[in-house]
Design a protein around this nucleic acid. Sequence first.
DNA 1: CTAGGATCCTGTCAGC
DNA 2: TGCTGACAGGATCCTA
Length: 303
Amino acid sequence: MPELPEVETIRRGLKNYIINKKIRKIKVLCEKSFINAPPKGIIKGIRRFGKALVIDLDSGWSLMVHLRMTGQLIYDGKERYAGGHPSDNFIDQLPNRQTRVIVELENGTLYFNDQRKFGFIKSFKTDQVENDPFIKKLGPEPWQMTKEEFYEKLQRHKNSPIKALLLDQTIICGLGNIYADETLFAAKIHPKTKAGLITKAKSNMILGVAERVMNLSIAAGGSTLKDYVKADGSRGDYLDKFALVYNKTGQVCPICGKAKIEKIRVAGRGTHICPRCQVLLEDSTTTNLKQASQNDKKQREIK
DNA sequence: CTAGGATCCTGTCAGC
DNA sequence: TGCTGACAGGATCCTA
């Protein structure tokens, strides 16, 4: 669930607590959640590659953390700092039954929680980070890519729905289900639009909007704020503050003020759209097929 | 090569 | 109340 802005928020927050701290012990509670052997060392830095974090140690080893859908990293010391999938784990007693890995530091404890066990921590030599298959395949982040490069990629996958490409981390990295929906809504493009039908101008717009949406979210601290951890009742969520379509099913569209936000399924994912602002473009092939199918229907009705 | 669907896993919620 | 199916802020693997 955490997308690029959330992961970046975790990186920025966590480094205030764990840099230059020695790992005393790593306890693996769920075998599946920790790949390779837990290393020793002092934490020297935290880098981010798309939605993955890499924690570098002074011993020549690194820990890659991918939260996938429900992962969380929670530092608990004098203060608590939590990020990832928002849940009561942020304020609950830890460890609990969703805790998969416990990293004991000299100044506190770092918990890796993950309800669905899709996420993981993986250790390898620091000089092998760039060789990790996931990191190796990652495409550029929106601000690292030229408009030409993005447009060419859309043309190369011309039969895919545009949303599927925005979710494909090898095409463009950082977007997930929320920011893909928000981006296409802001660009007024229906998520099922075949990539090949998107004009250069619209392609440019998608790239620009994706960058804007994610920068806005990073500035807002992603969709998981530290305030939430303080348990003062204020969630201060990006979703509440800025999201215009995600999870807004049934509400009136904030742009046209007429249609209601609908939830549909695209590329196997729940997808939110304004059916009035985001009209599906169809090419002649699709239109012809549709026409043919309607003709078939008429034929059958006649029979 | 591309495109689409199943799959990993646990928990929650709507509907009967 | 209980049961059932659908679905979830991700990515990979398998198939055609």
